[in-house]
C-alpha cells in the first residue's frame, strides 16, 4: 500500500466519518426532540465516529470531524451553538488522544468514551461561562457528569462491540 493511496484512503474515510457524525447528530436530535432534557444532555452518538477516527485514523482526522460538527451547529443553530460545540469537541478529542496514548492496555473504548464525554460537557460549560462572562454553572455540573458517564459508557461499549468487525483498522494508520 503506497503513500498516495494511503492518503487518499484516509481522506475518503475522514469525509465518510464526518458525514456519519453529522448523520448521527441529526438522528439523535430526532430522538430527543420531544424530551425535556436539560441543556447539554445528549446521547452523543456522533462521538462514536469521532472516537473511531481518533483511534483508527489519527488525530487530524478526529479534529477535522469536530470542526465539521461545529460548523454544522453554527449553520443550524447560530454562532453560540457553534462555539460551544467547538470547545466541547476540542476538549473531548484531546482527552481521547491523550488516553489512547497513555492507557491503552487498561481502558477499553468504554472508559475513554466516558472521559471524553465528560470532557466535552465540561468544555461546553466552560465555553458557556466564558460567553455569559460570569462564573460557574455549578448547578448543571452534577447532571452533566452523570449523563456524560452514562451516555459515554453506552457509546463506548457500542464501539467496543463494533470495533473488531472493522478489520482494516491497522491498515489505515
Amino acid at each position: 500500500m503506497n503513500d498516495k493511496r494511503r492518503r487518499l484512503t484516509r481522506l475518503t474515510v475522514t469525509a465518510m466519518l464526518a458525514a456519519a457524525a453529522l448523520a448521527m447528530s441529526f438522528f439523535e436530535r430526532l430522538l430527543t426532540a420531544g424530551l425535556p432534557l436539560p441543556p447539554g444532555v445528549k446521547p452523543g452518538f456522533s462521538n462514536i465516529a469521532v472516537l473511531f477516527a481518533c483511534a483508527a485514523v489519527g488525530l487530524p482526522c478526529a479534529l477535522f470531524i469536530v470542526v465539521i460538527k461545529a460548523g454544522f451547529a453554527f449553520l443550524t443553530a447560530g454562532a453560540t451553538a457553534g462555539f460551544l460545540s467547538l470547545c466541547g469537541g476540542l476538549l473531548s478529542v484531546l482527552t481521547m488522544f491523550a488516553l489512547l496514548k497513555l492507557k491503552r492496555e487498561r481502558l477499553t473504548y468504554a472508559g475513554i468514551s466516558v472521559c471524553s464525554a465528560v470532557a466535552h460537557n465540561i468544555g461546553q460549560l466552560g465555553a458557556a461561562s466564558l460567553l455569559a462572562g460570569s462564573a460557574l454553572y455549578l448547578s448543571w455540573l452534577p447532571v452533566l457528569l452523570v449523563s456524560g458517564a452514562v451516555f459515554g459508557a453506552v457509546t463506548g461499549v457500542i464501539l467496543n462491540v463494533v470495533m473488531p468487525a472493522l478489520t482494516n483498522v491497522r491498515f489505515l494508520r
Partner: peptide, 21 residues
C-alpha cells in the same frame, strides 16, 4: 473486550464526583 475493571472505575469515579457536587 466490552468492559474492563478500569472502565468501571472511571464511571464510578465520575459518578462519585457528581454525587459530591
Amino acid at each position: 473486550k466490552i468492559v474492563r475493571p478500569a472502565d468501571l472505575i472511571v464511571v464510578a469515579a465520575v459518578l462519585a464526583v457528581a454525587a459530591v457536587l
